[in-house]
Simulated assay, not measured.
Amino acid sequence: MGRYRLHVNGERRVVDVPADTPLLWALREQLGVLGPKYGCGVGACGACTSLVDGRAARPCVTPVADAQGKRITTIEGLSEDGDHPVQRAWLELDVAQCGYCQPGQIMSTVALLSHNPDPDDAEIDAALRDNVCRCGTYSRIRSAVRRAAQLKRGER
């Protein structure tokens, strides 16, 4: 067992787990942060996507020891009242069907828009290609990414 200091959604937190424990388990089981979903456990589906130091990462394959000292942001940490531009776009365009993949889709979109404020469809598809949506809402997701980019730029 080790003691790891994590910076999760703006708060300093401590977990006592083995070093190789996936960050996803520390978030969900130790800290009660349930937004990142368990999908595949091998980093292939994107349901757990969160930001680690501002970049999209897969907590299901990130050892907790590797996350120590880094800023971890999950969907819960985007905004207190759902007013982040990406969240607003998702709601405005009614993207979610079952909703299971949406936290990961949203966090991947936040990462994309942080370095590319006006992505084209090919860039959106490339950035979200590893986020699987079983319901097939990909066209609504792409539209929401474009809308989030507009909202982020202050466009109506």
Rank of each mutant, 00 (worst) to 15 (best):
G2P: 03
L6P: 04
H7A: 09
V8R: 05
R12W: 13
R12M: 14
R13K: 15
D16S: 07
D20Q: 14
D20H: 14
T21F: 02
T21E: 13
W25R: 10
R28T: 13
E29Q: 11
G32S: 13
L34M: 15
G35V: 04
K37N: 07
C40A: 10
C45L: 01
G46E: 01
T49G: 00
S50P: 02
V52G: 10
A56R: 11
P59Y: 04
D66M: 10
K70S: 10
R71Y: 01
T73R: 12
T73E: 14
T73A: 05
I75E: 10
L78W: 03
G82P: 01
V86G: 02
Q87D: 01
Q87H: 05
A89V: 07
W90S: 11
E92Y: 06
V95W: 04
Q97R: 03
Q97D: 00
C98W: 08
Y100F: 15
Y100Q: 04
I106E: 00
A111H: 07
A111Q: 04
A111W: 11
A111G: 06
N116V: 15
D118S: 15
D118P: 02
P119I: 02
I124M: 08
A126R: 15
A126N: 11
A127S: 09
A127N: 01
R129D: 10
R129P: 05
V132K: 00
T137C: 14
T137H: 11
S139N: 09
R140A: 04
R140F: 04
R140I: 04
I141A: 05
R146M: 09
Q150F: 01
